[in-house]
Simulated scan of single mutants.
Amino acid sequence: MDVVTIGESMVVFTPTSPLMRYAHTYSRKFGGAETNVAIGLTRLGHDVGWISKVGDDEFGKSLLSFIRGEGVDVSQVKYDENASTGIYFKEIRHGGDVRVQYYRKNSAASHLSLKDINPDYIKRAKFLHLTGITPALSKSCYEAVLRAIHIAKEHGVKIIFDPNLRKKLWSEEEARRVLLELSGLADIVLPGVDEGKFMFGEEDPNKLCQLFLNQGATVVILKVGAKGAYYGTKDEVKLVHGFPVKTVIDPVGAGDGFAAGIISGLLDGMELEKVVERGNAVGAIATQVEGDFESLPDRDELFRFFHSTGDDINR
């Protein structure tokens, strides 16, 4: 197993009209930070497992079938007979104005607990991928995440943490405390500059990289939007420029695509600068089609993207 990830995936409804208040029909898709990353990785040829819960309902069964069909191992996903699969609505007014409304309180995934974390499953992985969303769902989810981290550390599994701040899920005080805690337990941290500002009260990229390294990470990769991303280690901090996108169709999921590209590059043993280039590329590609993960590339598509930019040595 290359990667194990833990978190909630939901049913996504998008109105066919740009304005939801006037919409009569909706398209139904699926989305969730962790499964977006998982799908991105399977498309790039990696072996990924997902730990979660879904409702014992038609949405849960459909969601699980779909993600299994994308090549993600779902053997550790359980049905919850007492809770529903989470839902969210995504209103795409235009590429610069996408509004999301979640209906996930007391969802099946929020019931994830210590007993759902299988040590034998996690210790087989090379990387454990986590986001700040899962511990925000409930106390039991937070405890499950800490248990997974403990297992990973015990067995030499590298931990990759994306803060993925969701202020609506918890108080700012609790969010800051937990995100700082988990950043300190991770080997590699993937924050955005806005998340860094929230956590440390600092927005200078060079200083933020050093602050995350001081927390305990060995590598920090700091997203700075269209400009690209900085990587920071004890030896250097460097900006890797992003790829221009003429028209952004749907930015939701771009950060997850970035994470998938980063993890893929690490699994392939690439140099850190090339790892970040791959993350930037997958993130850019992810913005060009409606949907949280629909446009995430396979290896051939990624090669064609690099070739179109004049950089055809990257895959």
Rank of each mutant, 00 (worst) to 15 (best):
A136C: 13
G86H: 06
H111R: 15
A136N: 06
S113H: 08
I160L: 15
A148Q: 10
D120A: 12
T134E: 09
Y102G: 05
L179V: 02
V178N: 00
T85K: 10
L137V: 12
E172I: 10
E91T: 06
H129R: 04
I151M: 13
K115T: 00
I159T: 05
I159E: 02
I159Q: 03
K167W: 01
D187A: 11
K115W: 08
N164Q: 07
K90V: 15
Y121S: 03
S84F: 14
P119C: 13
A125Q: 03
D120W: 09
L114F: 13
I122M: 09
W170R: 04
E174I: 10
I117Q: 02
I117G: 00
A148C: 14
W170K: 01
A175N: 10
K153L: 14
R99A: 06
R104W: 09
S113I: 04
S110L: 15
S110K: 10
D162Y: 09
Y142N: 13
S110I: 12
E174A: 11
L114S: 11
V145A: 09
H155V: 03
N106L: 15
H94Q: 10
L180G: 02
L130I: 12
I149Y: 08
A144W: 10
D187C: 11
G156D: 13
H111S: 14
A175E: 06
D120S: 14
Q101K: 13
L114E: 09
L114H: 04
I87W: 04
H111W: 14
K139D: 10
E154V: 07
N106Y: 13
L112C: 09
E143G: 07
K167S: 11
G156C: 12
T134K: 13
L137S: 05
R124N: 05
R166K: 14
L165W: 11
E154A: 15
L179I: 06
F161H: 06
I92A: 02
G184N: 02
G95Q: 06
L137Y: 05
S171Y: 05
